[in-house]
Amino acid sequence: MNVAFYPGCSHHGLAQEYDHTSRLICSHLAVNLTEVEDWNCCGATAAHSLDHDLSLALNVRNLAQVKRGGHDSVVTPCSGCFSRLKTAAHEIRHDPDRLAEISRKLECPLPENVEVRHLLQLIVEEYSLDRIRALVKKPLCGLKAAAYYGCLLTRPAAVTRFDDPEQPRSMDNLLQALGAEPVTWSYKAECCGGGFNASEPVIALELGQAILDSAKNAGAEAIIAACPLCQMNLDGRQGEMTPPFGGKYDIPVVYFTQLMGLAFGYAWRELRFKKLIVNPRKLLEKYCLL
C-alpha cells in the first residue's frame, strides 16, 4: 500500500520517537510511506486563529504537493496537522470558488479529492484486528492502558469522519488486540490544552491534570497518546502538576506506535522509550515486556 506521509514540524524535535516508530510500524505493516515533498507547516493553531484563509492556503499547498507526488491519499501521525489538512480538504469540497482563488495565487493545480487520514485511522481502517493479532509476538498481557484520543482526532465529526466523537473505541480495540487491557474512563476525548503549553501553561496544566486524574482513578498504568502535542503536555508537564492528595504523578505517556512496536517484538532501544520524560521502564519490566 502506497501513501504520502506528512510528518509535521514536531517530528524533527519534540516527537522524534513518534516519527521514528510511526515509520517503523508502517514498514512492518507493509505500508509504503513517501514523505510529501517540500511540505510546509500546517499552521496549527496560529494560522486559523488569526486568519482563516491563510490556514486554508497553507494546507491547500500541502495537498497540492501530495498530488504532485502522484498520491491521492496522505497520512499524518499528528492530530493537529490531521485536523488542519482535513479541514482544508473538507472546505475544498464545499467551497470550490475559494479554492480556485487560492490555487491561482499559489500557481498550482487544484488538489481535489485528496484523502486525509490520521495514522491511527489508516491502521484501524486498513487492517482488521485479526491481522494485527496475528502479528503480535509479545502480547502486552495485563497492561492497564488508558487510550487517549484528545480533541482533534475525532472532532468535529462532520469533518474528521472517524470514530465516535464522544466515545471513540478504535484505539481501545487496537490495544485489546495487542493484548493490553484498555480501561474505561471518561476523559478519553477531552482536550488537554496542549496548544497553550508554551503561551499559557496555566491552562495546559489545569486541563492536563484533569486527564491524568481521570486515568489514574480508572486504574490506568499508562496513557496512550496519538498526538505529539498531547503527549508533550501530559508527559513533559507532569512534574509541574500537583495531585490533589499530595505526592507526585508518575504515569508514563507513550505513543500507540511504541506499544504496537513492543507487541510486534521490537526492542526497547529501537522504540526510543528513553526519549519519554516519565520513564516507562519499571512498568514494562513489571509485565516482563523488555
Partner: peptide
Amino acid sequence: HKNIEKFYEIMLSDIKNRGRISETIM
C-alpha cells in the same frame, strides 16, 4: 491575552520565513 496573540504572531512569522517552524527558536 497579549501573550497568546504574540505567540501566534511569532509562529506565523516563522512559517513565513522558513515554511516550517522550529520549536526551539520559536
